[in-house]
């Protein structure tokens, strides 16, 4: 009797021990998120205190690396730059990507569908420096030739970012279309709908939330992309609205990567504040996705 009890006790103790280990590892993610937010915020504090919200959200950008507190550090140029570049990235990228997803799931010959899909998934891994290098050596010179500008700017960044978010949006949209029950397609075709009518009236509406999530993730990818953008956006300190396509400007990420190496004091703290703005962008996107997918459950 006693032996059995002890065995059960041992057994339970082991299961409890395992559970503690598992919960601890799962908690590490919580710790990581909080540490990241806390440190980025802490490092931004000096800038928020000394430059102030008004100074940070202005167009004034005159850093003084030798005497940081004397400079002015407005972030509006890179914030608008990020928005402008992302705007074009999604305007070019999303229709192309969703169209490609429809092509892969519905229009391509059966025999090559999975080959194309797999190909796009593999090419999704092209590192961003490489796309940036391609942009710098092929795209920017091409734009320079046709526009009589130096080729750097929102247009170049938008195209590069569109290419970067293309595979992301495509493969998530394909997943959304594939997740639809096949009965939906059959029902529509059986009523005499053409392929296009089926896609546009039954399948895309049914998959719209998945496709929307794909686009939001694409936006996230574009906003946070660093190296490729830094290589083609021009890194100039002048505001470029979405319609100023060929004006060299900066984005939040390009500013961060350019300045982080050699800034000190408040200047350095401003770099972290730019990181904080990126974090806030990311959180907004997460909440957007949550809202979209919560709606689905209803």
């Amino acid at each position: 009797m006693k032996r059995i009890k002890r065995a059960i006790n041992n057994f339970q103790r082991k299961e409890v021990g395992i559970k503690i280990i598992l919960v601890t590892s799962a908690s590490l993610s919580i710790l990581a998120v909080f540490m990241i937010i806390a440190y980025i915020f802490r490092e931004s504090l000096p800038a928020i205190r000394t430059v102030g919200f008004k100074g940070l959200f202005s167009f004034n950008w005159k850093p003084e690396p030798a005497n940081p507190p004397a400079g002015s550090y407005g972030m509006l140029v890179p914030i608008i730059g990020t928005i402008s570049a992302t705007f074009w990235a999604i305007l070019f990228g999303a229709p192309l990507a969703i169209g490609t997803a429809v092509y892969i799931d519905q229009m391509a010959p059966m025999a090559i569908r999975s080959v194309i899909n797999r190909g796009i998934e593999i090419l999704a891994g092209i590192p961003s420096v490489i796309i940036g290098w391609f942009g710098l050596t092929m795209l920017v010179p091409a734009l320079r030739n046709v526009t009589a500008t130096n080729g750097f700017g929102i247009m170049a960044a938008g195209v590069v970012l569109a290419v970067m978010s293309l595979p992301t949006i495509t493969s998530i949209s394909v997943d959304a279309l594939r997740a639809l029950p096949p009965e939906l397609e059959e029902a529509s075709l059986a009523m005499g709908a053409t392929r296009w009518q089926t896609v546009s009236r039954a399948l895309l509406p049914a998959a719209r939330r998945g496709v929307l999530i794909a686009v939001i993730l694409g936006i996230g990818r574009a906003v946070g992309e660093t190296m490729a953008v830094q290589m083609v956006v021009g890194n100039a300190n002048q505001v470029a609205w979405p319609w100023e396509l060929f004006k060299p400007t900066s984005t939040l990420t390009s500013r961060i990567i350019s300045d982080i190496g050699e800034s000190t004091g408040v200047f350095r703290s401003v770099v972290y504040t730019e990181g904080l703005v990126l974090l806030i962008f990311a959180m907004v996107l997460i909440l957007a996705i949550r809202m979209v997918s919560r709606e689905r459950k209803r």
């Binding site: 799962a26 908690s27 993610s29 919580i30 990581a32 998120v33 540490m35 990241i36 440190y39 980025i40 490092e43 996230g220 906003v223 946070g224 992309e225 660093t226 990420t253 961060i256 990567i257 982080i260 770099v271 972290y272 990181g275 990126l278 974090l279 990311a282 959180m283 996107l285 997460i286 996705i289």
Partner: peptide, 25 residues
């Protein structure tokens, strides 16, 4: 749910932010 939210948040942070964090810490 909180763990999942944190994992989602972590996944959505731009890599440059991780770079900043790694550099600081």
């Amino acid at each position: 749910r909180f763990v999942k939210f944190c994992v989602d948040s972590l996944a959505s942070m731009p890599s440059i932010v991780f770079g900043l964090f790694g550099m600081t810490v």
